[in-house]
Simulated scan of single mutants.
Amino acid sequence: MSEDIRTTAPMLRKEPAIRRIGRSDIVDALSAGLRDFQAYPAFGVFFGSVYSLGGVAILACAFLWDLLYLVYPLAAGFVLIGPFVAVGLYEVSRLREQGRVPTLSGVFGAIWTQGAKEISWMAFVTIFLFIIWMYQVRLLIALFFGLHGMPAGAFPGVLFTTPEGLAFLTVGHVIGAVLATVTFSLTVVSFPLLLDREVDFITAMITSVRAVVSNPAAMLGWALCIVLMLFTAALPAFLGLVVVLPVLGHTTWHLYLKLVA
């Protein structure tokens, strides 16, 4: 009997409890995230610059290879890997929450330590979702415009003035919204949770989805806030991400603290 109890005990581990939050909690988290960025701007500028330069590099490759019709989906899909890039920002906020002073070695040491564990699997999930994003774009282009795609110089006119182009935009945005919702639900608290506690990445993703399901209105508001801020930041050649990513990253940490008991 005792052996059976010992065998099944690990399977009975409780999942993290989810709290209910409202609009005021998101505002509080944003204020706390802004304070974290102001307290340690060097970390924010560093991770924001890495993210911004990554976006610039991807778009430069699209221009270099004459794939201008992929610029918009690449820019939109690049947002999906933002939660992974912001792991260092979560650590800065975590240390500050504990009353400790973040240091370069401490932050990168935590990233390195956790990266060898479950966070690396979550990173794989986000990159996989980005690949799926780009594959569905390529599939839709083939379905609506043929296997050869569309001429780079003609794509704006084809996109906005033909039935195929308008159908492509409509279907693409619907599928993109679904993929973005799935990614948001899987990652909104996954990375902070893995950084903060000893849980596996499957539990982290399930907890993240539970947080969204338990707070649909508040999380929809947060998702729209993210989209608006990232869209505005990406307009000036991704340069705005140098500031916006740190604020969003720090805010995500404080939102995680409010959501997961």
Results as ranks from 00 to 15, higher is better:
Ala62Glu: 13
Ser190His: 05
Leu140Gly: 01
Ile21Ala: 07
Phe160Lys: 00
Pro246Phe: 04
Thr161Arg: 13
Ile26His: 05
Gly153Ile: 05
Leu89Ile: 12
Tyr51Ser: 00
Leu235Arg: 08
Gly99Lys: 07
Thr8Gln: 00
Arg6His: 06
Ile175Gly: 03
Val87Ile: 14
Cys225Val: 11
Val178Leu: 15
Ala234Val: 04
Gly44Ile: 01
Thr252Leu: 06
Val188Asn: 07
Leu228Glu: 04
Leu30Asn: 07
Gly106Val: 03
Pro73Thr: 10
Pro73Lys: 09
Gly48Glu: 05
Ile127Trp: 15
Leu59Met: 11
Ile226Thr: 02
Met11Thr: 03
Gly22Ile: 04
Val260Ser: 06
Leu64Glu: 11
Gly176Asn: 09
Ala60Phe: 12
Asp196Gly: 03
Ala76Gln: 09
Val85Met: 13
Leu34Glu: 03
Gly157Gln: 14
Pro83Leu: 05
Ala204Met: 08
Leu129Cys: 06
Asn215Glu: 09
Ser24Gln: 15
Val189Thr: 15
Leu67Val: 05
Ser208Arg: 02
Tyr256Cys: 07
Gly157Arg: 11
Val92Ala: 03
Phe168Cys: 04
Glu164Trp: 08
Ala62Gly: 04
Ser52Met: 13
Phe238Pro: 00
Val56Gly: 01
Asp4Ile: 00
Asp36Ser: 15
Val227Lys: 06
Glu198Lys: 10
Gly106Cys: 06
Met11Gln: 09
Ile111Phe: 08
His148Thr: 13
Val101Phe: 12
Ala177Glu: 10
Ala177Ser: 15
Phe160Trp: 14
Pro73Leu: 12
Arg6Gln: 09
Phe46His: 04
Leu245Ala: 10
Pro236Gln: 10
Pro216Val: 05
Ile18Leu: 05
Thr103His: 08
Ala110His: 05
Cys225Arg: 03
Asn215Tyr: 05
Phe84Cys: 03
Ile5Glu: 04
Val137Glu: 10
Leu34Asp: 00
Ser185Gly: 07
Arg96Glu: 13
Asp36Thr: 13
Tyr90Cys: 01
Ala217His: 09
Gly153Gln: 15
Val158Gly: 03
Glu118Leu: 04
Ser2Asn: 10
Arg197Ile: 03
Leu194Glu: 09
Gly249Trp: 06
Pro102Ile: 06
Leu147Arg: 12
Leu230His: 00
Leu239Phe: 14
